[in-house]
């Protein structure tokens, strides 16, 4: 699949999965388990087209006039996509952040990493990125569980001003498995993906389990995997970092409900900041992050689309002490 940016043009494209399969017999047996680009993928792409350039320019690089006395930054960006599947989003973002395309990011440079739990998806992502002539490193892993913790190792920063308690990821992207199972089934966890741990299981059953992991979000609200990713985002996002994540309406409702419950338990009197003007487009999440040091995350809806049977939205998740100025 060759992606034209910045005007995403998919009309004349073949599926990246097919492209992989025809080149590699090994992959041909497993590609059925790789999630192919669908309406949710395209919604994330549309949201990025709306939001990405402003986020990079105003927030990550502080080049906005309205940011007043903030110095302009020119740090290279670390971009990570979780659950990259066929690799469309990673390829598109890597392509749009090249300096010849996103002109406001001249000379900054990016390092992109795509992550998937499904080895076949990792290969598909790698192949899609190759076809699109973009540099993306692929890691086979469970969300960010493979990443060194910001605190566990010291980094040779000359002037440690922030206490270095933020992570390194500037842009995090996730089109997660968001569907709830009919009986609140758990999300498919990585260990069942390893064939040596499954007894009496045929290859077909294994493949269908891997395929299920691409859409089954887990639990009665389909948010198990999403919440795990939010915990990691709270820890691993850089101070000005942004996490773009897709949710279905009942995912978001569950996050808001759990936030209200958590604040009731803590006897916190600041219910006003859960929602802005009772807006359904914004929630302040306070329960995410590893261990005792919870780090608040603001979650703002930037684009929605009604498709038959479901309403999907893309949210921009970020640290609330860095205000939106766009």
């Amino acid at each position: 699949m060759i992606i034209e940016t910045p005007d995403w043009d998919f009309n004349s494209l073949t599926s990246p999965v097919i492209a992989c399969g025809s080149n590699n017999e090994l992959l041909n047996t497993t590609v059925a388990s790789v999630y192919e680009p669908a309406e949710d993928t395209f919604l994330v792409l549309d949201a990025l087209q709306l939001d990405l350039e402003l986020t990079v320019r105003n927030r990550l690089l502080c080049q906005s006039f309205s940011s007043g006395n903030l110095p302009t930054k020119n740090d290279p960006l670390l971009v990570v996509e979780l659950g990259s599947g066929a690799g469309l989003l990673s390829a598109a973002v890597a392509k749009s952040l090249r300096k010849d395309i996103l002109t406001s990011v001249t000379d900054v440079g990016v390092h992109c990493i795509a992550v998937d739990i499904n080895p076949a998806a990792c290969h598909a992502t790698s192949h899609t990125c190759l076809l699109n002539n973009v540099q993306v490193d692929v890691v086979c892993g469970d969300l960010l569980s493979w990443m060194r913790h910001p605190k566990s190792t010291c980094v040779n920063i000359k002037n440690v001003s922030q206490g270095n308690s933020y992570g390194l990821i500037d842009l995090l992207l996730f089109n997660p498995p968001y569907v709830r199972g009919p009986n609140g089934e758990c999300a498919i966890v990585p260990m069942v993906l390893k064939s040596d741990t499954i007894e009496n299981s045929t290859e077909n059953q294994l493949q269908s389990k891997i395929a299920d992991a691409a859409w089954l979000g887990g639990g009665p609200d389909g948010v198990e995997v999403l919440k795990k990713a939010l915990h990691q985002a709270a820890d691993f996002l850089s101070e000005r970092g942004v996490f773009y994540v897709l949710m279905i309406d009942y995912n978001y409702a569950a996050l808001v409900r759990e936030e209200i419950n958590a604040r009731c338990e803590q006897d916190v009197n600041n219910f006003g900041v859960i929602n802005e003007n009772n807006s359904k487009d914004y929630v302040l999440l306070t329960t995410f992050g590893d261990g005792t040091a919870k780090k608040p995350l603001a979650c703002r809806r930037i684009l929605s689309r009604q498709v038959p049977g479901e309403k999907l939205s893309v949210y921009r998740v970020y640290r609330p002490h860095i205000l939106d100025n766009y």
Partner: peptide, 14 residues
């Protein structure tokens, strides 16, 4: 393999 590190763990390793 093929440039992709596999960091997945088994159930009993987590």
């Amino acid at each position: 393999s093929s440039g992709i590190p596999n960091l997945l763990l088994n159930e009993d390793e987590v």
